[in-house]
Structure formats: structure tokens, C-alpha cells
Design a binder for these strands. Structure first.
Lengths: 127, 127
DNA sequence: ATTGCATTACGAAATGTTTCGTAGATTGTA
DNA sequence: TACAATCTACGAAACATTTCGTAATGCAAT
């Protein structure tokens, strides 16, 4: 089993498909075009490559195709996170969490949510 | 100002230099060799490239050189984190924190440390 | 059936990254 | 001084990723 390691462009497309479900090439391209210049056939090529790699499924839809993500969002994020944690933070989850909390203002509600989650972590470890 | 975006190999080397301070090519190569096969001149080439790019400084040291990281560890990690957060988690710091806490067991002490930090965050926001 | 338009398929150029071979330079020691 | 060991510089191959041009195909409306 090949390690799950989408390229930047592939990840960009996965986000679109995770958010919106099955899409045509044109739909994906329209979304990507908002953020940056990209040709239609470039987007098409990415989708074809990702389909070959087994990241996406596709089905016929009238003239063209619908593409849909096969790989699970959370599973993929977890794999990416593990890799990133190791390469950028030498595996220190603690440092990553503190840096994240420090750099991106969280609302009181979010802070409470994290507290609640910490509580469950602590309780679980005491079983 | 060019965006701070070290490649994987460059990041690997930065970690070594951040941990150990100024190093010779041989020292860096010895560290990298523990994790994977890599030729001496490969390591040398990386250090030269990183020096050209302005990521590293170097000074003469007897026969060879000593290389030292110019870019700051926390600044670099922050830049990497921002990019990663956007590309892998669509910018949701919350999701990233929860996934990190969920996947990597933290000690009670670490959990307490995070709680303490959340407290300061909440207090600061009330000023 | 023919035309026109959107789509697909293919291939390859352009770019970025990693890897190392080879040649030449430097230093310490016999 | 000359030899051996170690280091640097350079260039290029190997590999991965991104990008798009062009040609072929499918479909719909005339």
C-alpha cells in the first residue's frame, strides 16, 4: 500500500471535492480559478492523474465526467499531519499545538471546546 | 522578500542545525545518514544551495566550513504551519489542534500546560 | 449529415528537487 | 616537497511536479 502523499495541487483539488462532493472538471476549474490562474486542461490533467492513482473515482455524466474523492478527508489529514509534525516540529505535538493556538486567535467557545476535549483525554487515560 | 519555503531536504537539514548549532558538512551528513542513505556530496550540495539562498551562513573552519542556520526556528515553523494549515485544513486551526491532540497522546503535564496557555489566551483577549 | 462547441486524451515542455560523479583545491604529515 | 586524506566546486543526470498545446471525440442543434 502506497503512502498517502498528495502533491500540493492534488491537495488543492481534494479540498474542493471534499467540500462540494462530486464535481465536473469545469466546476473544479472554476473554483481553482478564483485563487489563481490555471488552464482548463491543467485541471483536467490533475483529475486524470488522481484518478489513475486511485485518489478519485469518476463516472460518466452526459458529455463528460463527474469526479469524486475516494480518500477520506480525516484519514488524509491525519497522514499529512503526522508527516508535517515530524518534518517541521521534530515530532513534538505539544509545540505544534502551542504554536497554532498562539498564532491563530481562537474564540472563547473554541477555547472551551479544547478544554472539554482535554478533559476527556485526561479521563480516558485514567481508565 | 522571498517566501520562506524550504524543501523537505532543506527542512531536514535545518532541524539538524537548529538542534546542534554550527556544523561541518561531515557532521550534518553523519546525522542524516542515521535516518537514510545519503552521499556526502549530496549533503554538501544542499548546504551550498541553502547558503546561496540565504538560509545558512558559513565560515571557514580549518580545512572546510562551518554552516549555521540564519532563519529562525520559530519564524520558519510559523510560516510552515500557516501554509500547512491552509492547504491541509482549509485554515481551520481548531480542526488541526483537535486532530493533533487526538492522535498523539499527551502527558498530564502537557495537558496542564495547554490548559494554562488557554487561560492566558482568554485573559489576554479580555484586556 | 454537417457544423459548432465542450469535453477528453495524449504527449511533451517547463520547472523544481534530489542525487551524485568527477575534478581540482587544501591541509597535515612523512 | 610530495603524498594521502579530506574537502570544495561544478555540472549534470534522475526524478517529480506543474503546465498547457493540439488533436480527437462526443453531442446537440440545425
Amino acid at each position: 500500500m502506497e503512502t498517502l502523499k498528495p502533491t500540493d495541487a492534488e491537495l488543492e483539488i481534494l479540498q474542493v471535492l471534499w467540500d462540494r462532493g462530486a464535481c465536473t472538471v469545469r466546476e473544479v476549474n472554476d473554483v481553482l480559478s478564483v485563487k489563481r490562474d490555471i488552464g482548463y486542461t491543467t485541471t483536467l490533467k490533475f483529475l486524470q492523474i488522481m484518478h489513475e492513482k486511485g485518489l478519485l473515482a469518476r463516472e460518466k455524466d452526459g458529455k463528460g465526467h463527474l469526479y469524486v474523492a475516494i480518500v477520506d478527508r480525516e484519514v488524509t489529514q491525519r497522514a499529512l499531519l503526522d508527516r508535517f509534525l515530524e518534518s517541521a516540529f521534530s515530532g513534538s505535538a505539544m509545540q505544534l499545538v502551542l504554536q497554532t493556538l498562539g498564532g491563530h486567535k481562537a474564540s472563547s467557545a473554541e477555547i472551551d471546546q479544547i478544554r472539554a476535549y482535554l478533559d476527556t483525554l485526561e479521563n480516558d487515560s485514567k481508565q
